Simulated assay, not measured.
Amino acid sequence: MTDLTVRLRPVVEHDIEMFRRFNTEPGLIGLDWAGYRDAAAPARRFAEDGYLGADSGRLMVHVEEEQAAAGFVSYLAGKYGGLAGFWEIGIALLPEWRGRGVGWRAQAMICDYLFAHTPAQRIQAGTHAENVAEQKSLVKAGFQLEGVVRACEFRAGRWRDGYLYSRLRDDPSPLANTGIVAT
């Protein structure tokens, strides 16, 4: 792992090509590949709200040293009942950026950002049972394993279990004393 400077930034028009790739290149998104998706959908969503919707959105994961977009983090609003709103986050990194410490930082940053700008008490993230690297990344980003979600995903011809992680507003940020700030 290297000491890269990671920041989050809004999506700009030239980022749409990366989203198209994730929709149309088998395997690029790893275990989350669920078949071909509409290649024009990213441009439509960008035109709608620049991926900065009130209930869902994306921010680009940008590596300063390379002046490159490494991937994106996403957020989606959910509700358990009453006023118990939460965010579900996700991340997709291009293969060349995986395993370099970019992902856990970006996940910690999106949590800090959402806690700073929304009243949510809870942020959750799911991952595949076999994705050990992502499980370690989530823990490093301040998440705790809550449990197994049985048969929650249909992938590669069968139903599969997933793991659910969460980070609460009062949980300490792993970025608190690093000088890294999510704006």
Rank of each mutant, 00 (worst) to 15 (best):
A125R: 02
G85F: 12
L175G: 04
A84N: 13
Q144D: 14
D112E: 04
E153S: 13
F143N: 01
P172V: 05
V148R: 15
L93V: 03
I110W: 03
S173K: 01
G90E: 07
W87Y: 03
V148I: 14
L145W: 08
V148L: 10
K136A: 15
V139H: 05
G162Q: 10
P172Y: 03
T178C: 12
I91C: 07
Y165A: 02
W104Y: 13
F143L: 00
A129S: 13
A92S: 15
F154H: 03
D171V: 02
G101P: 05
L94Q: 05
M109W: 01
D171R: 01
W159A: 14
L114D: 03
P172K: 07
F86A: 08
L83V: 12
E96L: 09
F86I: 12
R169A: 05
C111N: 08
W97M: 03
A151I: 10
G103F: 06
E134W: 09
A151R: 09
I89Q: 00
A106P: 08
V102Y: 02
A120K: 05
M109G: 00
F154C: 00
D170K: 14
W159Q: 10
G82R: 10
K79W: 09
M109P: 00
Q124W: 07
L175D: 08
R105N: 02
E96Y: 08
A106G: 06
G157H: 03
K79T: 06
Y113L: 15
